[in-house]
Amino acid sequence: MIGLLSYAVFFTTVASILAIAVLGLNLQWGNTGLFNGGVVAFFGAGAYGTLILGSAAQPDQFGGFNLFYPAALIGGMVVAGLLAWVVGILTLRLRHDYLAIATFGIAVTFENIMRNAEWLSGGAKGIRGFEQPLRDAFGGGLAYNAAFLAFVVAALIAVYQFLQHLVSSPFGRLLRAIREDEGAARSLGKAPSRVRLTAFITGSVIMGLSGGLYATFYAFVSPQDVLPTLTFQIWAMLIVGGAGNNRGAVLGAFLIWGAWTASGWSLSRFAPIEAQLYTGSIQYILIGSVIVGMLLWRPQGLFPERLVVSQSGKPGATKKQGV
């Protein structure tokens, strides 16, 4: 019973952390129409950033800043934001697929550098960070994990509220206007590339928060945590949940993470031994099929975007649901 409960806590913690990243992606793709093909780079920047800033000095290792935990977490978010700023400023003026390619590229490069730059990131063996904060206060174990879950859920709710507020604000309407018709938005005197840059950076900072929490939870991060697959999983969560809808994004995160762990578990339990090596391949095929299938048959997701018609909006302006 305790085993089941502690597994439930563990599962919910990871799913909630990923849900935060999905929310960040939803701001970029769902609300603004920006294709981020390298979510994992921003997630990873947050993870590595938090651990490097928060940990004590270790031999042959960059860092040792030993920052107070909240400062380290915020620092990780800032690192993710800076990365987004560099990519965004170079690509957001151009044809939309440049952003897709550049973000994909930065994710490949990020993983590559983390794997090779031992002085910075510990290389392939990863970076051991600091002990989970306040661990002693709860005496470790399930009590601590439950407390950490509460912290993560609080962060999720805060991000959710922030984004709900943002989306219904004039800025949110501007984002949708640019997504639907860039020319019209420009003719209203709005600079779409600046608005998009703001949205892109904000979304990436949220992904950085998610990465920071992930690294804190495991007190460890290695190149295995920032493989392109993670980008793919986060994408699947959003598209299944329904792009543009924050509630859908969170539900999608839980659904896909549940399906992913369940499929991994059942393959490892029921598949013949010689097929075990291919568990990953089968899971990737499944998740690829989910994405392609959703795009073909239910592009609006399971929980489609519900657009609030603003007072000045004509009915025709809100026709196009989702993406």
Binding site: F35, G37, D97, A100, F232, W235, I239, Y284, I285, I287, G288, S289, I291, V292, L295
Partner: peptide
């Protein structure tokens, strides 16, 4: 389409 191509590549 970009997104679909990610899925197709994975498959």
């Amino acid at each position: 389409m970009v997104f679909a191509s990610f899925g197709v590549a994975m498959i």
